[in-house]
Nucleic acid binder design. Structure first.
Length: 157
DNA sequence: GCCAACGTTGGC
DNA sequence: GCCAACGTTGGC
């Protein structure tokens, strides 16, 4: 089975790559069916970009690894959680999550503008007009292009 | 803060 | 099943 590649969006004020570096986490709180379905196909060892949205420097800041396949998102059952879903039950939890761990921090943020202007990345869901998917697939080619970007122009920003 | 784009809800 | 209204996302 080949490794698959993904992109995880997060608002760094809520949860940043630095937070993830401290310890692995469950990716709870995803309440979008498309994003959930992607998580349900993830395998241990899959790689992901970590993307900071809604912040001063928007872009990809590093990489993560899937360390546990999908299982029920318990926050959907917790009335006190921000992510509570009254339609979720133990029998039909509706929502799922995976566990992810820190893998690397890029020496600089690969900004959204840079991603938009780099040939070969046009098809990334992230760059499509109006795209709001918080968990999305990345092709092997796109993965390589972005990783290569992270290794050069080290001093810029 | 603005607002375009999106997904969901609910009336019909 | 349609679609208007609404709440949310997220770049700018």
């Amino acid at each position: 089975m080949n490794v698959a590649y993904w992109l995880f969006k997060s608002e760094p004020l809520v949860f940043s790559l630095t937070d993830l570096k401290k310890e692995p986490t469950d990716w709870s709180g995803v309440r979008n069916y498309q994003a959930r379905n992607f998580m349900m196909t993830m395998q241990v060892g899959d790689q992901g970009f970590f993307y900071h949205s809604n912040t001063d420097v928007i872009g990809i800041v590093g990489t993560v690894e899937v360390v546990r396949t999908a299982y029920p998102d318990h926050t959907a059952l917790d009335p006190l959680s921000d992510y509570y879903d009254p339609k979720a039950t133990v029998e039909k939890p509706i929502w799922q999550m995976v566990d992810i761990a820190f893998r690397s921090a890029f020496p600089r943020t690969i900004t959204l503008l840079e991603l938009r202007t780099t040939p070969g990345l046009e098809a990334m869901p992230l760059l499509q007009k109006g795209s709001r998917l918080s968990v999305q697939p990345v092709s092997a080619e796109q993965w390589e292009i972005v990783c290569a970007l992270s290794r050069k122009n080290g001093g810029q920003n």
